[in-house]
Design a protein around this nucleic acid. Structure first.
Lengths: 201, 201, 201, 201
DNA sequence: TATGAATGAGGCTTCATTCAT
DNA sequence: AATGAATGAAGCCTCATTCAT
């Protein structure tokens, strides 16, 4: 059918715009990227952007939404409930690394995000927090992890990772922060939360 | 001298602008605050802003610089080398709380900061990191704190605090995050880094 | 012939577009109606509009032309040369009422009309003015109507009717102005132009 | 005082913009005049327009408001309650003629006017209708004018005048319609509404 | 012929910065 | 030094029109 062919083409262009926008936002920052930049990077006319998204804000929301969906799904793929905590956190880092640039600007510019985008960020973090808490529960019971409130466990880890992402200009001027510092962060964090006493016994 | 009188007046106006700008940036956010907002809040004309600062960017840098200086000094006041780690971190939180609004936007909008401002942030953190590391060294040697790389010790703490500041809209919708969550964060962090085994013995 | 079949199809689509456009223009106003609105209302693609009309302006002209033709014809149907003035004017009102919405926007937005459209308006008015003047002549001679210049007779009537059409938002917020005020206008106008003295005698 | 000097200058610029806008709207039409046209005609930068008026729509409203105020005042100046009907209508025409171009576009493009502007038009017409009705009452009682409903008396006159204004491209291609046709319209209208019988007696 | 995605010129508006007073 | 009106570059968005399918 010609119609569905067209439909497909349109969807592809829209997806392509989302993709290109994600790259541009990742490269130039959320506020600094203009709709014209995105159009130019996609080799489409400026007007085309508004054919697919009524406003810049909606485009941004959809980009964040797409990113959230993708990241959440990827997290689920990388994880299973049999994992150890270390494996969960490693998967988390891996998931981030795959879209590190965009994830980093998202974390860095949370403050200037449109209203709706915050929910997306929450959704992304739910995906990982769910797994972390599940495994944490098990390991705490097993005595291999210190007992501590779940929210603080989670927020400490997220805070640490976000801190490195936010400052990736310093920590990894030209490359991936996760690639460069990820495993060290992981080892360190595991040291913090592991119950050494329990193991020694 | 009449000249020095004038000079003094000028300096005072400039300081007042820096002060007012800091409040406005804290209230509205770094990107969202317009030069006209600052002038209006200071009850000065819009043009006056540019009499004291060649560009908005320079104003922002000076505001951050002033904030950094003040915060660093305050940290020094609050700390002495005899402190325990817990006291150091408590002092840190207290120092932050005194200018929480501005500190929070600074942390939240790091990404859109002018080049020069990053050094200021580093300076602020040096003040606290210096103390933390000094005490950490002592306590690690004394066996009351786990041994761990200093940078990770520091970054974990900073990451945790910044995470709460960045998300203060969620963690403390209308008030101070530090006032509300500070002591819990502190207790949690101390639990993480304390050498329980050492103490038990 | 297959060719003429196609031809016919094309003509039908074109007529349908003219029809739909007339409705839309009547509903939304001349300037406020976009080509995309017309296509959507006709359940045709936006591009199809330009297959039949090179520009929006031409479409508008053709719509006005079609309207003019139809209205002029309808006037002729409703009238015959034996009519009294009152019957002529009643017929005029009836003719207008049948397409009041479009007639009203035409009158209201005359100023923004393309060049060519003005002639159409003139043509429409010629149809009615022809009859009015014919009857007027007869009645003036018969002494039942005041003597007055034909153009002023005509323009006073048209002006009155157009005034009510232009302000139908006030005179008939949700309905037909003619239905609501037509007969009163007619009676009033007849009073103005009738030669009472002549009748009394 | 420097302040009041400034104040005055600003007010003057604003008034000048209103004046220039009125000319441009009169010349190019309400919809066709762009904010940039007005700025250029006033030899001011485009941005200046928005220093004085938050949106184009507000500018348009203020222009119409100023026009309304001026016209209403002028009407009052030209009229007094001792006038004859003929004098009242003559004054009305004179008042219109002084700003004919703008009055004409206002009448021609009523349909595309912002909401608030309609009230202004009503206000202008109230000024004249008030006088017309007052005099009409007197003259009807005196038997020199036909008895007729006031609203129809008024609307017939307004309709006639507006019709000529709306079609001034035809009635006076390059000049004032009122100058060219005013007195003839007046004479004609007086003939229509005068009570000839009464006079003959 | 019909489609509808893509185009791009052009409009409105914002806001840091300048300049005459 | 202070003022605040004026500037104009730049951003977002609309919509008539084109073009590949």
């Amino acid at each position: 059918m010609a119609g569905s062919q067209r439909q497909k083409q349109k969807t592809e262009t829209k997806n392509f715009l989302v993709e290109t926008a994600m790259e541009q936002f990742g490269k130039r920052g959320l506020t600094a990227t203009r709709t014209a930049d995105i159009a130019a990077a996609a080799k489409l006319s400026h007007g085309t952007v508004f054919l697919h998204f009524p406003t810049r804000e909606v485009l941004l929301e959809e980009v964040i939404g797409a990113f959230g969906m993708r990241t959440a799904n990827r997290m689920h793929e990388l994880l299973d409930s049999e994992c150890t905590m270390e494996e969960v956190l490693a998967a988390h880092l891996k998931g981030i690394e795959e879209n590190e640039a965009f994830y980093a600007v998202l974390v860095s510019e949370t403050a200037v995000l449109p209203e709706g985008a915050h929910n997306t960020l929450i959704m992304i973090q739910s995906a990982i927090s769910h797994h972390i808490l599940q495994v944490a529960q098990r390991e705490m019971n097993a005595g291999t992890m210190k007992k501590m409130p779940f929210d603080l466990l989670f927020n400490t880890w997220i805070g640490l990772v976000h801190y490195y992402l936010s400052n990736r200009a310093i920590f990894a001027p030209d490359g991936s922060v996760i690639a460069r510092h990820g495993s060290r962060l992981l080892t360190h964090f595991m040291d913090l939360i592991s119950e050494k006493g329990g193991l020694q016994k």
